[in-house]
Design a protein around this nucleic acid. Structure first.
Lengths: 143, 143
DNA sequence: CTAATTGCAAATTGTTTGCAGTTTA
DNA sequence: TAAACTGCAAACAATTTGCAATTAG
């Protein structure tokens, strides 16, 4: 979808900064972190401030326009949410490329959880590994 | 398992600080963050330094003695790994209590991923929600 | 004895905030 | 024009690091 349309769909004002952020994010299906995003935004809109980027990441996530996943070290990763509905990600640790999967493990165990007296509200499911391309480039082929 | 035995099993030296850290963690099945852990460690071993706690959390995770999960806001959570083998967690957002589940979604899709030319190396699967007790205490019962 | 570990203090990293000026709808 | 948004600079929280002193095996 067009960047401006995305912003309108979220009832957000169209600003050059937001356009830049979404332009960067919409050119790839990979997750990137805020720092990297900031660097790329600067290339197409010099002078943009880091706080603006952070504020907008929060805003865009809260509008459901972006996916955010927390990483082990801290430093969340962001990616534009292209597909509708619930889904999960397969993420290449080499290049960051992602594959969307429809499969959701919750269906398989929701019932069991309720039997345990637990009410699930949300969940996290991500798969990490290497795509063929990145795996070939690694020293240790036996990952 | 006894705290000292755990340390030995990880080929780690037994220090009062490590004992304190493990004593805190072994008294509960909940995930807690580094700050909270530090506070509790201070109670049983005053003077312990924060950097020591951080260093040991890293060490203990790398030895497989602790589980670490990243949170949305940053600030990872830690918990002693009691059960052997592969498992996942159900985590109460109210009290932090956890339930271990044996079910692993990877089995269901590993084959499919390989068909896509993707080699999975690790994955994350956690379920968040509320246990009966915590749910009752909430304003909004319809979570 | 010696390699591992600790405390300390300072540095770093990543992110957030208040506010005044600017821009969008 | 009113509310939303931005840049700036400063604050912040959480974590990490170098190093000298201490301690466990």
């Amino acid at each position: 979808m067009e960047v401006d349309k995305i912003l309108k769909s979220g009832q957000l004002k169209i600003t050059p900064q937001r356009q830049a952020i979404l332009r960067v994010l919409s050119t790839s299906d990979s997750f990137i972190n805020a720092q990297m995003l900031f660097t790329r935004v600067l290339e197409i809109l010099p002078g943009t401030n880091f706080s603006t980027v952070y504020r907008n990441l929060d805003t865009l996530v809260s509008k459901g326009i972006l996916c955010r996943i927390p990483r082990d070290n801290g430093g969340d990763l962001y990616k534009i949410r292209r597909e509708e509905g619930h889904h999960h990600h397969v993420i290449c640790k080499g290049c960051g490329a992602t594959i969307i999967i429809e499969f959701c493990p919750m269906e398989a165990i929701r019932e069991k959880l309720e039997g345990l007296g637990f009410t699930p509200t949300d969940h996290r499911f991500e798969i990490y590994g290497y795509c063929d391309k990145c795996r070939e480039g690694r020293q240790d082929k036996n990952i």
